[in-house]
Each structure stands twice: as structure tokens, then as C-alpha cells.
Design a protein around this nucleic acid. Sequence first.
DNA 1: CAGAATAGTTGCGTTTGTCCACTAAAAGTA
DNA 2: TACTTTTAGTGGACAAACGCAACTATTCTG
Lengths: 162, 162
Amino acid sequence: MPAKKKGPPHPVETVGLDVLEDTLSFYIRTINIALSRDLDDRLEGLDVARGTGKITTLLLVDSHPGIRPSVIAQLILRDRSAMGRLVDQMIDHDLVTRRNAPDDGRAQELHITEKGADLARKVREIATKQSSDFFAGVPEEDQKRLLDILRRVYRRTLGLDQ
Amino acid sequence: MPAKKKGPPHPVETVGLDVLEDTLSFYIRTINIALSRDLDDRLEGLDVARGTGKITTLLLVDSHPGIRPSVIAQLILRDRSAMGRLVDQMIDHDLVTRRNAPDDGRAQELHITEKGADLARKVREIATKQSSDFFAGVPEEDQKRLLDILRRVYRRTLGLDQ
DNA sequence: CAGAATAGTTGCGTTTGTCCACTAAAAGTA
DNA sequence: TACTTTTAGTGGACAAACGCAACTATTCTG
């Protein structure tokens, strides 16, 4: 009998994930962490670091001029106060502007700035690139299907469908 | 011409997500939020609220007696200090025990307590149920495929494969 | 044996988000 | 018109979580 090798009783490579192996939440959570870190790296110094919703806000304001903070808040699952602070930040960075809605005294309309539009272009590239990088090795068809399922889950979560 | 209807220029139902529509990160992030909140609700008062990794830790310790904190840390993508504090909490709640590894003076081994094992049973049910609830309407085969892809992405992220 | 790597702990700082209360405006209702 | 309810946004307080960096103690490498 050979001498016992040292090392942990349960090395990383061999640890099963128990029930989580077949569960959405675990993968979503961990992949989310990985994805966020990776995105932060790619956004290095781009005024939009730490993508807590800034990216979505930026792109939405860019492609939907006049969109309201509360609408974005719903889409990214945050409350209005968090959204407000997010917009504050982006205004500080001169990425968007905020003005009162002409037809509704309660509401505001967001518009992109030049600097914001520039950034939006870069961010689109980066986000798309990241997605395909993470999908490397996954057949095109499966990617489509995956996004499709996620999209459905997302929309149902928001109560957008039926 | 009928009078103009009031309301936001870009109501939630009609807002396109720009590039993010076809991007992993957006869905992962938002679904993660939804999933976490939902899970918290389901774990109501179960000593394991706010599932920041407690769930994974609990299940792993239960199914891999003697597993080391650092191994779990790798699996859930956290650093050792965060992991240590997590274990502290769980010990406070009497879910796991920590002892020094007999064969390695640097390491520790985690073991489940009775209370922890009970909780693990409940958590397994809940996590599984949640997953299938979120998958409602998605064909069995697609579910499998999705989990398969996520599993692959996860393992690659950890550098476990190849 | 010396130097490098690993496991864990602790303090620090930062970020983030949630809850709650409050104002203002609009919509609904009678 | 007068009332009540709902919606949009703001601001403060509070708590939790995480990462980094520094430090100790072991163990591994050569």
C-alpha cells in the first residue's frame, strides 16, 4: 500500500454540488459574479465601472430618448430611490441629462449626452463581445435557445407577458 | 385625430432592451435579483436568509463532511476572508462546526450539525422547487439543455475543465 | 535550511441597496 | 368641484456584504 497523499479530503475538482447541480439559482448566482467581475475589467476606467445598472440605463436612455427613470427602475428591478441615485451619478459623469416631463409634473425625461452616446457605442461592443466570449464552445443554436429561455423567464418575472 | 393619450413616452411593455436583448449579462443579472428575492421569501425565517452563499455552504458541508472552507470559497467565487465570516455566521446559528484538520495545521474541516442537517433537507426541497417553478412552461428538454450550458460555463469559469 | 506557497484571521474602507417618510402632481370618484 | 388614492421622485438612516491588504502559522519545494 502506497503512502497516503496529503491534501484536502474533498478537492475542488471532485466536489459535487448536491442538489444545486441541477438548480437554476446556483449557476445564475455564480455566473453572475463571474460575469460582473469580467465586465468590470473590460470597462476599465470607462466612467461606467461597476455595472450595477449603469450599463442598462445608458443603453436605454440612448435608444429611447425621453425614457423615464421609473420605467428603467422596473426593468432593472430596483426601487425608485436607488434609480434616482443612479441617475445622479450618471449626470455627474455627464452621460445623461434630466429634465421635467412637459406633460406630467411628477415625471422626468432622460436624454443622452454626446459623451453618453459615445460611451454607449463602446459599451454595446463590449457587452456583445463578452456574451460571445462566455458562450465560446457553445453551439450557436444552443446560445439562441438559452437566450430565448432566459428572455422568457425575465419577461414573466416582470409580469410583462399575460 | 383623437386626443393624445397621456402616459410615458416609452412604457415598460414596449421598451426594447437594445443590445442587451441578446446578451447574457443582462438576463443573468436581473434574473439573479429576482431569483434571490424569491429565494429569500421562500426561506423566510429559516436561519439561512439572504442566500449569499449560506445555502451552498450548508449543502456542501452536509454532503461532504470535512470539506474545507477554502474549497467552498473557490466554488462560490469568494475570497477566504468572506468565507471565514460566512462560516462564523453559520456556527453562530449552530448549523456547522469547525475543527482543525488533523493532518494539516493550516486547514480546517467543516462538519454539519443536527440542526444543519435538518435545514439542509428543507433547503434542498425549496431550491429544487424554486428552480422548477421558474422553469414553468419551459419544456423539460430545454431545461436540461439550459442547465447543461450553464454548468459548462460555470466549470470553465472555475478552470475546472481542461 | 531558505524561500515560496497555502489556509485562515482581522481591520478597513467602500459600495450597495432597502426601508421609510415626505412632497408634489395626477387620476379616479362621487 | 372636492375627496381620496396612486404615481414619480427625493433624502436620510441603516445594515450587510465584499474585496483588499497585512499578518501569522504551516507546509511544500529544491
